[in-house]
Structures are given as structure tokens and as C-alpha cells.
Computed example of a mutant assay.
Amino acid sequence: MTLIIPTSYDMTTTCPQDKNMDGFFSGRVMGKDTLTIRFYDGAGFCIALVDIAQVRELLSRDNGLLLDWLSEEEKKHIGKYRFPKRSSEWLSGRIAAKAALLRGRNFLQGNYSPGEITVLGDDHGRPMLMRPYCVRMPQLSISHSGRYGVAMTTFQDCGVDIQKIESRIAKLGDHIGTEQEIRMAAQVLFGPPEEGLTLLWAAKEAVKKCCLYDRPGLFTATVIERIFRKRPGRWVLNCRIAGDSRQEVQVTLLGGYMLAWCGRVHNA
């Protein structure tokens, strides 16, 4: 499947590239001086990452810039946002979601342009593919933090979360994890405390989006039982949710960010 990118506007941007993302993501769309979309292709899923700073710069030139990515329903939705920061975050998430859907694996079972795809939130705020209708509907998850918007698509329930590592997270330590969870994170990361706390936060957010989107609570609903290092900068977390249910989460360190994702079989 060919990824059809809108080209009716000048897409060049002066935002510098972040080399920290190149070790994990690949497959840049367009050149180094244009809007960059990075991809991570896994077993049955795709994660796409968009630079919000680039999107914000492009939007500031012309209110119509980049809107070829949106369907008519989405254009009405983005018009509700009063602040450029929020609209650029929302748009970055939709661009990432559509890029992941169009990346390959026949997620949409046909050829579509981004403007023919509609992704809006359901009653729980989960991003859902509203159009086109597919016999086998792909699932979506979207996140943004700091400079980046990210989206994941697969044919399973899924959750993705990106969190910028910041020192102020230390004030939330007691809310994010138990003493045992914080100790486990410290034992495998060897970095400052905020790295371990951000790892726990991103992992629990991903599980919430994947498995607990219709239930209250975030940090207490997921119990992390084990963390092991898969390779430098990459960890696997074994979690217990909803009593005896189990969920595995992948987490990777990307410069000043933690990216977490997980998926489970979708029960229609």
C-alpha cells in the first residue's frame, strides 16, 4: 500500500531533527527539512511519531496548512480548540494515527488518502476509526507529551503512551507507584529517580488505554510485578490488572522520553 501524503502546501520546517529518535524509529516521510514522520514496525502493529514543534510551526504560517490530513468531521472538531498548543497536539496525534494506518499491513483493506479517514474519540475518549468501515477494524491509541505526538495501530486492543522525563515528577512518586515498584524500576534503570518514575507512569498509562479505558483509576489499577531489561534502553514489564489478569508492556528510553506500548487480543 502506498502512503499518500498531502503535498498542496509548503511543508518545509526549520525545526532541528532530534537524533535521539533515530535509533528506534525509521522510515522518514519527506526530506530532512520537511515534516518528519517516523515509524516503528512491530509484529502486527505500527507506531508512528510526529514532531509537534514542526506541526506548530507549519500551522503558524497558514490556518489551512496541514488540514489536508483531516476529514470534514475532523476539521469541525479541531476548530473547537482555542489555543494553538492544543490544536497542534491534537493534529499531530491524528497525523500519526493516519500515517500508521496507511503505513502497510493492509490495516484499511484498501487505498485511501488521509482526508478520507476519520479518527474521533468514543464515549470514553478513546480514538476510534469512524471512517472508512473495514470488515476487520483496526484499533488505535494516541499520546502526546512535550515535543512529540505518537500513535499505535493494530488489530488488537492496544495502548501507547509517551512521557517526557522531568524532575518535577518526583513530587508524584507516591501516587505513581508503590515502594516495591519504584525500587524495581531503580534496580533496572541505574539513572536518576525521574527516569524510573516516568517508566512506571508511561507503562501504566499504556495499560489503562489498552485494557482499562472504561474503568476509573490509573496508577492503582495496575500492579507491576516484574521489570526486566531486554537490552540497553529497553524493558519489559509484567503487570497484573483486574484481579488475576496479566498484561505485558514494552518500554523504551528515547533521549528525554519514555515510550510504552502494549496490545492484547481484541474480543469483538
Score class of each variant (00 low, 15 high):
151 A>D: 03
213 Y>N: 00
198 T>E: 01
90 W>N: 14
139 Q>F: 12
166 E>G: 13
109 Q>E: 14
198 T>R: 01
211 C>N: 13
115 G>M: 08
234 R>Y: 13
15 C>R: 14
28 R>V: 02
265 V>G: 11
253 L>Q: 06
14 T>G: 09
228 F>R: 13
256 G>F: 03
237 L>D: 03
259 L>E: 03
224 I>A: 02
101 L>P: 08
212 L>E: 09
38 R>A: 14
6 P>D: 07
65 L>M: 09
127 P>M: 14
146 G>R: 01
189 L>F: 08
109 Q>W: 02
78 I>Y: 10
26 S>G: 01
238 N>R: 14
81 Y>R: 11
260 A>F: 00
93 G>Y: 07
141 S>A: 11
24 F>Q: 01
143 S>I: 03
132 P>R: 13
104 G>P: 15
159 G>L: 04
107 F>T: 02
201 W>L: 00
62 D>E: 11
60 S>E: 05
99 A>G: 00
250 Q>K: 08
126 R>I: 04
48 A>Q: 05
160 V>F: 09
103 R>E: 08
214 D>E: 12
266 H>G: 01
79 G>V: 07
16 P>D: 08
34 T>D: 07
97 A>P: 00
248 E>D: 12
111 N>G: 12
113 S>A: 11
175 H>S: 12
1 M>T: 15
6 P>A: 05
243 G>W: 08
75 K>S: 00
23 G>D: 05
216 P>E: 11
219 F>V: 07
230 K>N: 12
253 L>C: 08
197 L>S: 09
131 R>T: 01
259 L>S: 03
173 G>M: 10
56 R>D: 15
3 L>Q: 13
257 Y>E: 12
108 L>Y: 00
5 I>E: 00
250 Q>T: 10
172 L>A: 08
224 I>K: 01
36 T>S: 12
156 Q>D: 15
247 Q>H: 09
3 L>T: 11
181 E>I: 05
